Simulated assay, not measured.
Amino acid sequence: MIDNLLLLTQVPILGVDLVIQGLFIGAIFALVAYGLALVWGVMNVKNLAQGDMVILGGYISYQATLWGYHPIVALPVAIVVMFMLGWLIYAVIIRRVVDRDMFTSLLATFGLSLLIQQILNLIYGPEVKVADAGFGDFELGTFIVIQNVRLYSLLMAAALALAIVIFMKKSRMGQAIRATAQDARAARVLGIDTDQVYAFTYALNAAICGAAGVLVAMIWVIQPYYGIVYSIRAFIIVTAAGLGNLPGVILTGFGLGVWENVAGFVFGAEFAVAAVVLMLVAVLMYRLVQLYRVRQVVR
Rank of each mutant, 00 (worst) to 15 (best):
N4S: 11
N4I: 00
L6F: 08
L8A: 06
T9F: 10
Q10H: 13
V11Y: 14
G15F: 09
L18V: 10
L18T: 05
V19P: 06
Q21G: 07
Q21C: 00
F24T: 08
I25C: 05
I25W: 07
I25F: 09
A27F: 10
I28N: 12
L31P: 05
V32D: 08
M43A: 11
V45P: 06
N47Y: 00
L48T: 00
L48R: 01
L48F: 12
Q50I: 00
V54M: 02
G57K: 04
G58F: 02
Y59W: 02
S61C: 03
S61W: 00
S61M: 01
Q63C: 00
T65Y: 01
T65H: 05
V73F: 12
V77L: 13
V77A: 09
V80Y: 01
V81T: 10
F83W: 09
L88S: 12
L88I: 13
I89M: 10
I93N: 14
R95N: 13
R95L: 05
R96P: 04
V97T: 13
D101N: 14
M102G: 07
T104E: 14
T109R: 08
F110G: 08
G111S: 11
G111E: 04
G111K: 02
G111Q: 08
S113M: 09
Q118N: 15
L120T: 06
I123C: 00
P126F: 03
P126M: 03
V128D: 13
V128G: 07
A131Q: 03
A131V: 03
D132C: 07
D132Y: 15
F138R: 04
T142M: 08
T142W: 08
T142E: 14
A159D: 05
A161Y: 09
I166Q: 13
F167R: 11
S171I: 10
R172S: 15
A181F: 11
D183K: 14
A184C: 11
R185T: 15
R185D: 15
V189A: 15
I192S: 10
Y202G: 04
A203C: 14
A203P: 13
L204C: 06
N205K: 08
A206D: 10
A207E: 10
A211S: 09
L215M: 15
L215Y: 06
V216C: 12
V216R: 04
V216K: 07
I219D: 14
I219Y: 14
I222A: 02
P224E: 09
Y226R: 07
V229Q: 15
S231D: 01
A234Y: 04
A234F: 04
I236D: 02
V238F: 01
T239I: 05
A241F: 01
L246Y: 10
V249W: 00
I250V: 13
L251H: 01
T252E: 01
N261C: 02
G264I: 09
A269T: 12
E270K: 08
F271V: 03
A272G: 04
A274T: 11
L278W: 03
L280M: 14
L280G: 01
V281I: 12
A282I: 11
V283M: 02
V283R: 00
V283N: 02
R287D: 06
Q290R: 08
Q290S: 03
R293Q: 10
Q296L: 13
R299I: 05
